[in-house]
Design a binder for these strands. Structure first.
Lengths: 150, 150
DNA sequence: GGCGAATAGATGCATATACAGATAATGGGG
DNA sequence: CCCCATTATCTGTATATGCATCTATTCGCC
């Protein structure tokens, strides 16, 4: 065993966090030309799929603390990518992509698809599919939105 | 599909990051009585296994940027859990657990084992084992320490 | 031995993350 | 209609994270 080898970790949390750090660097390297951070790209993509949602609902979808979202959304609003509107319930902030946000997402999508494809090839489709399925199940299990099932 | 359901994500990076956030909250809740953050616990555990290592080597093991480690280690040194020594190469910082660090790790281990066991039960041993194996493979693949293999 | 490239960490800066507590708005009971 | 519990978000504070850049050493070569 080479000293420079990455040893396996027994802690599920540590193993996920380590993989996340490695993946984040890979994806942010790919997104660097667009100026988007991984979290920001994810939010643009989620809003594109979800349409207009409240901040709380977006926090739930991404399993991000709502107070964390407050600050990330402030940055993205500064860039003009996000429109924050008050809903009928005036406590809520309704969020949607601005036109500039849609353009930014469209600029980023090819870079994202490229890194997704490269990683899928490197891992192989079986591992790729298993990972997406299992990671989504972990999120469901841990956030207690109902037990996962096959 | 209930509105409150967590939708699956197609982005590997986003899915890992979301799971990491959820797992981190679960594990930090369990470690709260010890005052340890997830990263700090992981470093204590890694040092316990690795013995005395340089900061750069620890960064490699955990796939943490070495400059990130500088700050986390400063916090842990403040708490008295880590001893930083200069090595023969005087650029290096050699790290090892202090006696207080070993005590802190021993205090934390039962809490960690409990949350590990509970999560393993919730996911089932097959999924648990698959997840540890696959996440470790992703780290290897992405940090390019050699291709993963079955 | 001394110079320049390479290496190990540290520092400046910006974002990501979440908990505790504050604020604003809603909604139910009397 | 008013009070209070609840809910949605914001703020204060602390840690986590990494890139660009800087400093201190080391190493190779002449």
């Amino acid at each position: 065993m080479n000293k420079s080898t990455i040893p396996p970790l027994d802690c599920m949390c540590a193993s996920f966090r380590r993989s996340s750090r490695a993946l984040t660097q890979l994806y942010e390297e790919a997104l660097r030309p667009t100026g988007l951070r991984a979290t920001q790209f994810t939010i643009l993509q989620a809003l594109s799929l979800a349409g207009e949602v409240s901040q709380g609902r977006l926090a739930q979808i991404l399993a991000i603390d709502s107070t964390t979202l407050t600050r990330t959304l402030a940055i993205m609003t500064r860039h003009g990518w996000i429109a924050k509107l008050r809903g009928g319930d005036r406590r809520q902030r309704r969020l949607r992509l601005s036109p500039a946000g849609k353009r930014q997402l469209n600029r980023a999508l090819p870079h994202w698809e490229k890194v997704q494809t490269q990683l899928r090839r490197k891992l192989g489709p079986r591992r790729w599919d298993a990972l997406l399925r299992l990671t989504n199940q972990v999120t469901s299990a841990v956030t207690a939105q109902g037990a996962p099932h096959d």
